[in-house]
């Protein structure tokens, strides 16, 4: 078996047009779901009457169903729904909007849980200290609590983003022309599926690696203030060794 490298180059060149589409889906979903995730997390933490049940139900609903089922449902339900509201125009809507909807809904659920646990890692003494220097609860939340929660949430946000990037490849089901969809179409012309999929593979690897680096830099920059503690208190003992591990100090 030999790989048709010329074809791979060709697919790479065509599929690169899908990169912005993939990034767009990821960014839109992230930017919308970050604030809503914080809001939903707060609703759960403060047990806001009525709403808290709703959020809990929403989170279980999204987390308890495969994303492919969510995609199929949104993709078949929304056009006809919209058709009832705005008429025929509904069918000429760019399918990328359906992708935005599915992936945003999806990451809201993930991030709600991420922020809920992150907010709960912030000591309640931080709020009390804010009140005792005369700040309002709202001010203390924005300036003291939320920044700390966001930083401790960063690894999990990074995780959620990587899943989002990879899941976004399912957008081809909704005929969104992302990396996967383009490569698939190219492959179908020539029956060079393996080559096309290898290209897809490399593209996602690069995007995910890029995202990892960005998050790593974020984390390094923002967690300046707690680096010394981390080294001392994190788990670092190899469970099968009798001696304490030697760790270099950064």
């Amino acid at each position: 078996m030999s790989l048709n490298t010329d074809f791979m180059v060709k697919v790479a060149q065509t599929a690169i047009q899908g990169v912005p589409v993939t990034l767009q889906i990821v960014l839109v979903a992230l930017l919308i779901s970050l604030p809503i995730g914080v809001l939903f997390a707060l609703i759960r933490i403060y047990r806001v009457k009525g709403l808290q049940r709703l959020v809990q139900f929403y989170v279980s609903l999204v987390r308890g169903t495969p994303i492919i089922a969510q995609i199929l449902i949104v993709y078949s339900a929304f056009p006809s729904l919209l058709n009832m509201i705005i008429g025929k125009a509904a069918f000429s809507i760019n399918p990328i909007y359906y992708a935005y909807i599915v992936f945003t809904f999806n990451s809201i659920a993930t991030l709600t849980e991420v922020f809920r646990s992150a907010l709960q890692t912030v000591d309640k003494g931080q709020m009390e200290a804010g009140l005792m220097v005369g700040m309002q609860p709202r001010q203390t939340f924005w300036r003291i609590i939320l920044p700390q929660a966001l930083i401790s949430a960063l690894p999990n946000i990074a995780n959620a983003t990587l899943y989002l990037i990879k899941n976004s490849s399912l957008a081809f089901i909704m005929s969104v022309k992302d990396i996967t969809a383009i490569a698939k179409t190219e492959a179908a012309f020539n029956y060079n599926f393996l080559e096309a999929y290898l290209v897809v593979w490399v593209y996602y690897l690069i995007i995910c690696y890029g995202a990892e680096i960005i998050f790593y830099l974020f984390e390094r920059y923002f967690s300046k203030y707690r680096r010394p503690i981390k080294n001392r208190t994190g788990f670092n003992w190899f469970p099968f060794s009798i001696k304490q591990p030697k760790l270099e100090q950064k």
Binding site: M135, Q139, R143, Y225
Partner: peptide, 23 residues
Amino acid sequence: FQNYNLFNNKTALQNITEGLIVA
């Protein structure tokens, strides 16, 4: 406070200026 409760994401100086500036 017994356990200090300094604002962890602020420097010593910012811990003090925070209330002055914001409140």
